[in-house]
Design a protein around this nucleic acid. Sequence first.
DNA 1: GCAAAGATTTGCT
DNA 2: GCAAATCTTTGCC
Length: 218
Amino acid sequence: LLGAPTLEAAGALLGARLVHGERAGRIVEVEAYIGRADRASHARFGRTERNAPMFGPPGHAYVYLVYGMHRCLNVVTEAPDAPAAVLIRAVEPLAGLCAMRDARVATEATRGVPAGLAPDPVRLESIRRRIDRVPEHRLAAGPGLVGAAFGLDLADSGRDLLDPGSDLRLEEDPGAPPFSIVRTPRIGVAYAGPEWAALPWRLLIEGHPCISVKAGRR
DNA sequence: GCAAAGATTTGCT
DNA sequence: GCAAATCTTTGCC
């Protein structure tokens, strides 16, 4: 499944479930990053401490910090000598929605606060009120929001997502409603140059309400 | 050893 | 529509 060519694996991930403890959601939008030659991929510099999971076995997590604040989840694909991964860009919440809101509040509250220090209660309450108003379909509608809603940490990078005994895992969902797949260029990769940025390596469930906001639901 | 940029999100103009 | 927030990684000196 995930050892298949990355674009096939990306299609297979759509509709699957991402589970973390009591939280579960359906993957509705992904992006493929394929090989060292891909100028948009973190693997373009070769193997580093951060991207090491991309050079490992398929089905493992690659979690990285972007813009100094957002944690993004990838699922590693292809053989260990072929660095590739699929970025989970948006998820439809299915279970554990309260835990997702709690995690988003906690993520934002600890931002900029030294580890181990309690966040300011007033600021915490302000964040809480805002997150409580976020509609369900926006809880994990973006790669950074998936990381926040599922409470992912850099320490989760490298974990095996195919281990059925793990609290953080992927599950197939035979009961998922049927859907059509749409392919578009990837988001936010203009730095890679026109040729790489134009490749239709973003896949999403057509018309799904939980598509990432930045991408504009198309 | 230091400067620059980033697979984003949010809020203000 | 634009810029700030925030910090790790990369790349050059």
